[in-house]
């Protein structure tokens, strides 16, 4: 870690508030890749994700004074990004005005059909690029409401409460969507990663 990387977030935010452009640029470089990935996973579109990336950092820059410091700067930036990405998603779908809740909570049971152990750790079996491709394609098959909750809780590490607040959902709704998202991803990844042949039931 370089000395610049080691400077803590709050110090950088304070310096940026006082007009130090370099500090805000450090924050950009630190988080731009993760923010882009989050935007891309929600919008599923490179061009939209680039817009969301830029709009989110500009909004953060414009509203630095309203950042309270009682949450992490990154969590605050994630909230801005999710709002921007969801707006983009809704705008793209105007004409058929799809709600993010569409098709959810129909009372259907969560299912677990694919029962097989994985063939080792995918992190060892696949190159980073191959694995990223598999993970991207798999999460893209989930409905927006599921993949957004999964990204916030399991990738960006927001708490259940923070996720509920960002998405305007109740805590039980966040938990229910997260479980469904995890099980759907599990089902699809297991098809990809399962041990082939007679060893499928090696756990027995």
């Amino acid at each position: 870690m370089s000395p610049v990387d080691a400077v803590d977030e709050l110090t950088l935010v304070e310096q940026a508030r006082e007009g130090d452009g370099g500090s805000f640029e450090t924050l950009i470089r630190r988080y731009q890749n993760r923010i882009f990935r989050l935007a891309k996973r929600i919008t599923q579109n490179d061009e939209d994700a680039e817009d969301v990336l830029q709009e989110s950092f500009l909004k953060a820059y414009d509203h630095l004074d309203s950042f309270q410091g009682n949450s992490k700067f990154y969590t605050w930036l994630v909230r801005i990004t999710v709002n921007e990405a969801l707006m983009k998603l809704r705008k793209r779908r105007t004409g058929k005005e799809v709600s993010l809740d569409e098709g959810l909570d129909t009372g259907e049971e969560v299912v677990t059909r694919e029962i097989a152990v994985w063939d080792g750790d995918p992190e060892q079996t696949y190159s980073q690029e191959e694995l990223r491709g598999i993970l991207d394609r798999t999460i893209d098959t989930l409905k927006p409401a599921f993949r957004t909750v999964f990204m916030l809780r399991d990738v960006e590490d927001l708490s259940t409460e923070e996720t509920a607040e960002v998405l305007g959902l109740s805590i039980p709704a966040v938990k229910s969507r997260l479980l469904r998202a995890r099980l759907q991803l599990r089902e699809k990844l297991t098809r990809q990663f399962k041990r082939k042949g007679e060893d499928v039931f090696a756990y027995l």
Binding site: I115, A116, E123, L135, D154, L189
Partner: peptide
């Protein structure tokens, strides 16, 4: 197996 593979799923994404 469901428990193990769900944990693995979270791990690879995280």
């Amino acid at each position: 197996v469901v428990h193990d593979t769900t944990k693995n799923t979270i791990r690879v994404y995280r």
